[in-house]
């Protein structure tokens, strides 16, 4: 019985990762690709780690899987925030049919203290 549940989590996680990879190829600019990575790929990794901790009932496996899940959840949005900020500051081209861009021309640099 536990095999079926773990197999379900494995297949769901790998499908989410495949969807994230398709999104990286298909979507039209950097920010949209960031949407795909920071949501679908994180959820895929979490589901696969749930499958591992279902199959191996040991404390060390659970603690390490929990560590990876917490790192992924906490750091994926921060990393995408930094890359999107850097990409917008270096004037990367945006995709078609943008409605508005209120960050255009706004200076958000932190002034030097020295």
């Amino acid at each position: 019985m536990i095999d079926w549940i773990a197999a379900f989590f494995l297949i769901a996680g790998s499908l989410f990762m495949l969807v994230a990879a398709i999104g990286v190829v298909k979507l039209s600019d950097v920010y949209m690709r960031m949407h795909a990575i920071t949501k679908a790929a994180s959820l895929g990794a979490i589901l696969m780690l749930v499958a591992v901790s279902l199959l191996y009932v040991q404390w060390i496996v659970w603690i390490e899987a929990l560590m990876v899940v917490v790192f992924v959840i906490l750091t994926a949005p921060i990393a995408s925030h930094m890359i999107a900020k850097a990409a917008h500051k270096t004037n990367m081209p945006k995709g078609p049919n943008y409605v508005m861009d209120e960050l255009e021309g706004v200076d958000t640099d932190i002034p030097d203290k020295a």
Binding site: Y31, M34, H35, T38, K39, A76, P77, S80, H81, A84, K85, H88, L103, V106, T108, D109, I110, P111
Partner: peptide, 14 residues
């Protein structure tokens, strides 16, 4: 914000 559907935080003023 980054985790809600269809939105991604990008930048913040100082």
């Amino acid at each position: 914000i980054s985790m809600t559907p269809g939105s991604l935080s990008m930048d913040m003023n100082p």
